[in-house]
Design a protein around this nucleic acid. Structure first.
Length: 185
DNA sequence: CCGCTGATAATCT
DNA sequence: GATTATCAGCGGA
């Protein structure tokens, strides 16, 4: 990705990532769903300031912020935004490469169930806390620009209680690989 | 198709 | 001690 992509306001970054391709060890696909979080946002881990867990959110942009949620799942974010303490949660991919590895890790075969949610995505790509802070433009990761313009859908973020009405979830309209459909306009 | 529930542990108060 | 940016499985319609 061009480095200046990461330096724009985090809402724009969240939109710009739709349609880009993310790979980890050659396994991954096209980003079809994202959510934006930033330090002025009560739903964000960065809202209460810098802590041990969220430290990468204040680090260099274009890197991974990986955290564990509900003691079970991992979630992968792209650190970025013109503002400090911002990140984009990657919620769903359209699997295109390494389908067999994803099926092994996930224990399902339906491609729509491999990466259709933040926890599933991290599991399918083999991402865990070990990758926290790694640059997404360098091995073992790769983040590639999209080939064509994406038809964007916008909606409220999922699974949060604070800031729940903010329309900071973005997706590829009509994609069958979303964690949830966007409401019809 | 939809909604509910248990699992499970780091993080923060 | 409460909360949590989740998921799979289950039961019902």
């Amino acid at each position: 990705m061009p480095p200046d992509i990461y330096a724009q306001p985090v809402l724009n970054l969240a939109r710009a990532l739709i349609g880009c391709t993310l790979l980890h060890d050659g396994v991954g696909g096209v980003i079809v769903e994202t959510e934006a979080y930033h330090a002025g946002d009560p739903a964000s881990h960065s809202f209460a300031g810098e802590t041990t867990r969220n430290g990468k959110m204040w680090g260099p942009p274009g890197r991974a912020y990986v955290y564990r949620i509900y003691g079970i799942h991992w979630c992968l974010n792209v650190v970025g935004g013109a503002e400090a303490g911002a990140a984009v949660l990657l919620r769903a991919l359209e699997p295109t490469q390494g389908l067999d590895r994803m099926r092994e890790r996930r224990g399902v075969t339906d491609p729509r169930r491999l990466c259709s949610g933040p926890g599933k995505l991290a599991q399918a790509l083999g991402v865990s806390g070990a990758q926290d802070g790694l640059p997404l433009d360098l091995p073992p990761f790769a983040l590639l620009p999209r080939a064509a313009a994406a038809m964007l859908a916008t909606g409220k973020r999922i699974g949060i209680t604070k800031g729940a009405d903010e329309p900071w979830r973005f997706g590829l309209a009509g994609s069958p690989f979303l964690s949830r459909r966007f409401p019809d306009p």
